[in-house]
Computed example of a mutant assay.
Amino acid sequence: MIQETTFQFLRNLEKNNTREWFNDNKNTYEYEKANFVDFCSELLEGLKLIQENLLYTDVKSCIFRINRDIRFSKDKSPYKTYFSAAFGPGGRSSGQIDFYIQLQDNETMLGGGMWQPTAENLGKFRQEIDYNPEELKNIINSDNFRNHFPEVHGQELVTSPKGYSKDHPEIELLRKKEMFFVKKFTNGEVLKKDFTEIMLTHCKVLKPYLDYLNELFEPTK
């Protein structure tokens, strides 16, 4: 389970986001990262029971580096102030829509869905909404899904996309440029002994939407 010391380390890192401080506290970082990896390992074992293509995925391949890519960023802080991981077949670089988790002080979250899709995949999404909107709507409008993920996130067009009428009955979905769902957790929730089970419950609810997207975006053979 996640320890309070992990949040304390992340708070300290946020206040002292320099390479000098990080190097001076490298041992603490390694200890707290190990706590996060242990949690992810337990979560991954639970995910393997609901998603067969994760069966041979190693937890270390799911963990993101804490170093930030600052090449094109005005913010030159060298480190992220959170631990993060993505659970797809083979790890974080699966190329599929996967479960993403981020452990951060007062901002811990689970997320997944259509985020920054390619033009091709966005076209597939809109075409499917045009032809068969009910499959997606049955997933995201179910009471169980809405209870766990009540809010849709992501960018959308102000007007209708090219090729679709502004009077289209599914225009709200067609305007989506992104469509992902997020569940945030308080520190108190994260520190509970049953937090892994809580996270798995939300993953099970999110899974049908991720499966829908992965099937839709599967490359044509």
Rank of each mutant, 00 (worst) to 15 (best):
L55P: 05
G46Q: 15
E30Y: 07
R65E: 06
T220S: 11
T5K: 12
E45L: 11
Q155C: 09
Y82Q: 06
Q102A: 10
E14G: 07
M114G: 04
T118F: 01
I70R: 08
E45K: 12
T159C: 12
D58G: 10
Q116G: 12
P133L: 11
T220H: 08
K183T: 08
D58E: 08
N25D: 02
F22A: 05
T28V: 15
F87W: 08
Q96P: 07
L216N: 05
E170T: 08
H168E: 04
Y79T: 00
E172I: 05
N132T: 09
F195G: 03
I129G: 03
R71C: 09
R71L: 10
K204N: 03
L13P: 13
K33R: 15
E134F: 07
L103F: 04
P78F: 01
K166Y: 11
L191N: 04
E42M: 06
K207N: 15
W115D: 02
P150Q: 00
S77A: 00
Y164G: 14
Q96D: 13
G111L: 08
E156Q: 09
I2P: 01
F195S: 03
A86G: 09
K184F: 13
P208C: 13
T5R: 12
Q104P: 06
I140T: 05
S142Q: 03
D75L: 14
Q3T: 04
E151D: 06
S94N: 06
G111V: 09
K76W: 00
R126W: 00
K60S: 09
T28P: 03
T220M: 11
T6C: 08
D105Y: 12
F83Y: 05
R71Q: 13
K207Q: 12
L10E: 12
L110I: 03
F39R: 02
G123M: 06
K221A: 10
N12G: 11
I171Q: 10
Q8I: 01
D130R: 05
D194Y: 02
P78R: 00
P133M: 09
G123C: 04
I171P: 02
R19V: 00
E215P: 05
H168K: 00
T196L: 11
L157D: 09
Y56H: 15
K183Y: 12
D105Q: 03
S93V: 13
N138A: 10
L49A: 15
T159N: 14
V158W: 14
